[in-house]
Amino acid sequence: NRRVIAMPSVRKYAREKGVDIRLVQGTGKNGRVLKEDIDAWLAG
């Protein structure tokens, strides 16, 4: 149960899109989840 590193704005964006942020692979520094990662996850 790893802790997800993401800015609050990215967490909010994921919530609005209905994405469980824990399932998204972060590509930022130290595995940080970026807004682009959410978009990529939604695109498949």
Rank of each mutant, 00 (worst) to 15 (best):
2 R>Y: 04
27 T>W: 03
9 S>R: 10
13 Y>P: 02
23 L>E: 11
32 R>N: 08
16 E>G: 09
44 G>R: 15
5 I>L: 05
10 V>W: 02
39 D>T: 05
38 I>W: 00
36 E>R: 15
39 D>P: 01
9 S>H: 12
17 K>N: 12
36 E>Y: 09
2 R>A: 09
19 V>P: 00
12 K>N: 08
30 N>P: 02
31 G>F: 06
15 R>M: 12
17 K>Q: 13
37 D>H: 02
19 V>Y: 01
43 A>M: 13
27 T>M: 05
40 A>L: 14
24 V>K: 01
25 Q>F: 12
10 V>L: 04
15 R>F: 13
37 D>R: 00
13 Y>K: 06
38 I>K: 00
30 N>W: 12
43 A>K: 14
39 D>G: 03
36 E>I: 13
3 R>A: 10
5 I>M: 03
35 K>S: 07
2 R>M: 11
28 G>C: 03
2 R>D: 14
1 N>Q: 14
38 I>H: 00
26 G>S: 05
31 G>I: 02
22 R>Q: 10
4 V>F: 04
1 N>G: 15
13 Y>W: 03
3 R>E: 12
27 T>I: 02
4 V>H: 06
41 W>Y: 15
19 V>C: 07
5 I>H: 05
33 V>Y: 01
17 K>Y: 07
39 D>W: 03
32 R>M: 14
10 V>S: 03
33 V>N: 00
9 S>Y: 09
15 R>W: 15
35 K>A: 08
42 L>T: 06
28 G>A: 05
33 V>K: 03
14 A>V: 01
14 A>D: 00
40 A>E: 11
22 R>C: 09
34 L>E: 10
19 V>R: 00
28 G>H: 03
20 D>A: 05
33 V>F: 01
5 I>P: 06
38 I>G: 00
40 A>H: 12
39 D>R: 04
20 D>I: 05
32 R>A: 14
22 R>K: 10
4 V>D: 06
22 R>H: 10
3 R>V: 14
37 D>C: 01
2 R>H: 15
43 A>Y: 11
12 K>E: 11
18 G>H: 11
32 R>I: 09
12 K>A: 10
10 V>K: 01
18 G>T: 04
35 K>T: 09
22 R>N: 14
44 G>V: 14
21 I>A: 03
13 Y>S: 05
35 K>C: 07
18 G>R: 09
20 D>E: 07
27 T>P: 01
2 R>E: 12
30 N>V: 06
34 L>I: 12
14 A>G: 03
41 W>E: 04
2 R>G: 11
25 Q>M: 14
8 P>M: 08
28 G>M: 02
27 T>V: 03
1 N>S: 15
7 M>F: 15
15 R>Q: 13
17 K>P: 00
11 R>P: 04
8 P>G: 10
36 E>T: 15
4 V>A: 08
4 V>N: 07
11 R>K: 11
22 R>L: 11
8 P>R: 14
39 D>V: 05
20 D>M: 05
19 V>I: 10
24 V>T: 03
27 T>L: 04
34 L>Y: 08
26 G>P: 09
43 A>W: 09
1 N>P: 15
5 I>K: 07
29 K>Y: 11
37 D>E: 01
41 W>R: 04
18 G>M: 08
19 V>D: 00
20 D>L: 06
14 A>N: 00
11 R>V: 09
29 K>H: 11
31 G>K: 07
19 V>K: 00
19 V>Q: 01
42 L>I: 15
34 L>P: 00
25 Q>D: 11
42 L>Q: 06
33 V>L: 05
29 K>E: 11
29 K>R: 12
27 T>E: 03
33 V>I: 15
39 D>A: 04
6 A>H: 05
